[in-house]
Design a protein around this nucleic acid. Structure first.
Lengths: 191, 191
DNA sequence: AAAATTAATGAACAATTATTCAATCATCCA
DNA sequence: TGGATGATTGAATAATTGTTCATTAATTTT
């Protein structure tokens, strides 16, 4: 053609970049390698992204949005409290689990020379639904009356931790594991 | 003198390196900046460390050892179970809290081209005392009978999470905060 | 206090890696 | 089909950053 911009190429570059960052960290990321991993010439990467900085920032936003959308779908705060709480806890577990790789990227991005100040605030948005729900739980007298941040820590902290253990090969994660952890967590925060 | 090697200089370099990594991540760490931050000429850094790789690995070991020693002191597994559990939980909280900066460094090191395979195993050692204690708790019938990894996640996950919230400026951490979280966590895992 | 020894300096050099762009290729359309 | 348009290439270049080492400074020894 003079074919239109091929967006699958952008996604290919994203995928390669993510893979390389996970393997070697930000410090080891080289544009030439990104190109090679994407089966492209180095110059081609610069057609789709202004420079390395741009590539990394675009990738961050791409991953962040994808994760947020995925998490929010299927959550309906109108339903009965205990049910919503359960759904949201498992949804967070599953999304986090399926996107651990990305999480590692996001973590590193957070402490890097690339971080743009405006994204910091946006980052918290993904937790907003949980935040709101916990507030509601306190008001409705269904949860311990402590600071919502404390409840949140108890909700998601163990999830992060068990997924880490999983990646260190210390534990299997299956329906039973998840349920057991869920019960412990709920036992802690419910009134 | 021909004075003996000045170890305060090594510590100065460590401190500068840590500071710079926390500010800009591994990707942004420059030997020239390390030197400048330490009020030394670039060449001087190479007197004390073979190269950049060496500097980073030495720093990792230095921080890891310091943290481990600090955590282990004052823990005596011979005492009564509930007391040890409480002491160890607060000790872990305090050490983690006081060394968040270092933790951020250690995390980044963990996913970087610098990671030496042998340190991976050593890394888990710091959690060993907690691990052992939880095992004992299950045996003595004082804790929920689930996989120790699950108990561990519930123990330390919320700690990591609340400290993160603290660093995002979302919450104060004081004796009350800590106690409230402690109670939630224990409510969850105790029988 | 001069000679000897060790530490420190920082500009010069080497190595690595980001970026550009003239040349080539692929596709479209008249 | 041939010229026009836009995409792709990758070697050449620019920029950055790690490392060295001849020189200078500091300290110790005799």
């Amino acid at each position: 053609m003079a074919r239109h911009r091929d967006y699958s190429k952008i996604e290919q570059i994203f995928e390669s970049t993510l893979k390389l960052v996970l393997e070697k960290g930000f410090a080891g990321l080289k544009m030439a390698e990104v190109a090679k991993e994407s089966n492209l010439a180095t110059g081609t990467v610069y057609i789709y992204f202004k420079d390395k900085d741009d590539l990394i920032n675009q990738l961050y936003l791409f991953l962040k949005r994808r994760k947020t959308i995925l998490f929010l779908q299927g959550i309906d705060q109108k339903e009965e409290f205990d049910l919503v709480l359960k759904k949201i806890w498992f949804a967070y577990f599953e999304v986090t689990m399926q996107h651990v790789n990305e999480s590692a990227f996001l973590e590193q991005y957070y402490r890097s020379p690339f971080l743009k100040s405006n994204v910091k605030e946006e980052s918290k948005q993904i937790l907003k639904p949980i935040y709101d729900l916990l507030g509601r739980g306190v008001v409705e007298g269904k949860l311990q009356t402590v600071n919502v941040e404390i409840l949140l820590s108890q909700m998601v902290g163990p999830i992060h931790e068990i997924i880490r253990a999983y990646h260190d090969g210390a534990i299997e994660i299956n329906a039973e594991t998840m349920n057991q952890l869920y019960l412990l967590v709920m036992k802690g925060i419910k009134l």
